[in-house]
Amino acid sequence: QIFVKTLTGKTITLEVEPSDTIENVKAKIQDKEGIPPDQQRLIFAGKQLEDGRTLSDYNIQKESTLHLVL
């Protein structure tokens, strides 16, 4: 699982696999929060994550925290 922290300070927990794409993660966030993926920007280690890449591409491991910017 990974954590996604929103600007409001809320933390969302997501069940993911390293092979999941960023697009996939955004879809999971939409399921939980109702935020359309095209409004979501995910930041990890100061980098904006691209939809077509996977979590493992960015070396995002379990218990990692991503930041969600709208």
Rank of each mutant, 00 (worst) to 15 (best):
Q1E: 08
Q1N: 10
Q1L: 15
Q1P: 09
Q1H: 14
Q1S: 11
I2N: 01
I2V: 06
F3S: 05
F3E: 03
F3N: 05
F3V: 05
F3K: 06
F3Q: 05
V4W: 01
V4M: 02
K5A: 07
K5W: 06
K5Q: 10
K5E: 07
K5L: 15
T6A: 05
T6G: 06
T6K: 05
T6Y: 13
T6P: 04
L7V: 15
L7W: 15
L7G: 14
L7S: 15
L7R: 10
T8H: 13
T8D: 12
T8N: 12
T8R: 09
G9E: 04
G9T: 03
G9R: 04
G9Q: 04
G9W: 04
G9V: 02
K10D: 08
K10Y: 13
K10S: 08
K10V: 09
K10F: 10
K10L: 10
K10M: 09
T11Y: 10
T11V: 14
T11I: 15
T11R: 09
T11A: 05
I12T: 03
I12H: 03
I12D: 00
I12A: 02
T13G: 05
T13F: 08
T13L: 10
T13Y: 08
L14D: 01
L14I: 13
E15C: 15
E15I: 14
E15K: 09
E15S: 13
E15P: 06
E15V: 12
V16G: 03
V16K: 01
V16M: 08
V16R: 02
E17M: 11
E17S: 12
E17R: 06
E17Q: 11
E17T: 10
P18D: 09
P18T: 09
P18Y: 11
P18V: 10
S19T: 12
S19P: 03
S19R: 07
S19E: 10
S19L: 09
S19G: 10
S19I: 07
S19A: 08
D20I: 05
D20R: 02
D20K: 02
D20C: 08
D20A: 07
D20W: 09
T21W: 05
T21C: 05
T21S: 08
T21G: 03
T21Q: 04
T21E: 03
I22W: 02
I22A: 02
I22P: 02
I22L: 05
I22Q: 02
I22V: 09
E23I: 13
E23V: 08
E23N: 08
E23D: 08
E23L: 12
N24L: 13
N24H: 10
N24P: 00
V25I: 14
V25S: 00
V25G: 00
K26H: 02
K26M: 06
K26P: 00
K26N: 01
K26T: 02
A27N: 12
A27H: 13
A27T: 11
K28T: 03
K28R: 08
K28W: 05
K28S: 04
I29V: 05
I29P: 00
I29W: 00
I29H: 00
I29F: 03
I29Q: 00
I29C: 02
I29K: 00
Q30G: 07
Q30N: 09
D31L: 14
D31C: 14
D31I: 13
D31W: 09
D31H: 13
D31Y: 10
D31V: 13
K32F: 08
K32V: 12
K32C: 10
K32N: 05
E33P: 01
E33D: 05
E33N: 07
E33H: 08
E33Y: 09
E33R: 05
E33M: 13
G34N: 08
G34Q: 06
G34W: 03
G34I: 02
G34L: 05
G34A: 05
I35W: 13
I35E: 02
I35Q: 03
I35Y: 13
I35F: 11
P36S: 08
P36F: 06
P36C: 10
P36E: 08
P37C: 10
P37G: 08
P37L: 14
D38S: 13
D38Q: 12
D38I: 10
D38Y: 12
D38V: 09
D38R: 11
Q39L: 11
Q39C: 14
Q39F: 09
Q39I: 10
Q39E: 09
Q40W: 06
Q40F: 15
Q40Y: 15
Q40V: 09
Q40N: 03
Q40E: 02
Q40K: 02
R41M: 12
R41T: 13
R41V: 15
R41Q: 13
L42M: 03
L42K: 00
L42V: 03
I43S: 10
I43G: 03
I43E: 08
I43N: 05
I43A: 06
F44M: 04
F44W: 09
A45H: 12
A45F: 10
A45L: 12
A45I: 06
A45M: 15
G46F: 05
G46C: 10
G46E: 05
G46Q: 05
G46K: 04
G46Y: 05
G46I: 02
K47L: 13
K47F: 11
K47I: 14
K47V: 14
K47E: 11
K47S: 08
Q48T: 14
Q48A: 11
Q48M: 12
Q48D: 13
Q48G: 07
Q48F: 13
L49Q: 00
L49K: 00
L49Y: 01
L49P: 01
E50G: 04
E50P: 03
E50A: 08
E50H: 08
E50C: 11
D51H: 06
D51M: 05
D51Q: 05
D51N: 11
D51A: 07
G52S: 13
G52I: 07
G52K: 12
R53D: 05
R53N: 10
R53F: 12
R53G: 06
T54H: 06
T54C: 08
T54F: 06
L55T: 02
L55R: 00
S56K: 11
S56N: 09
S56A: 13
S56M: 14
S56G: 10
D57I: 03
D57Q: 07
D57S: 14
D57A: 06
D57M: 06
Y58M: 04
Y58I: 03
Y58P: 00
N59L: 07
N59T: 05
N59S: 09
N59K: 10
N59A: 08
N59P: 03
I60V: 08
I60F: 03
I60W: 03
I60A: 02
I60E: 01
Q61P: 13
Q61A: 11
Q61I: 13
Q61H: 11
K62L: 14
K62D: 15
K62Q: 14
K62H: 15
K62R: 09
K62G: 15
K62A: 15
K62T: 15
E63S: 11
E63F: 14
E63V: 04
E63Q: 12
S64L: 04
S64K: 04
S64H: 07
T65K: 05
T65W: 08
T65L: 10
T65G: 03
L66D: 01
L66Y: 02
L66P: 02
L66W: 02
H67D: 09
H67N: 07
H67C: 15
H67G: 05
H67Y: 15
H67A: 07
H67E: 11
H67I: 13
H67L: 14
H67W: 13
L68K: 00
L68G: 01
V69K: 08
V69M: 13
V69F: 12
V69T: 09
L70T: 11
L70A: 09
L70E: 08
L70S: 10
L70R: 09
L70D: 09
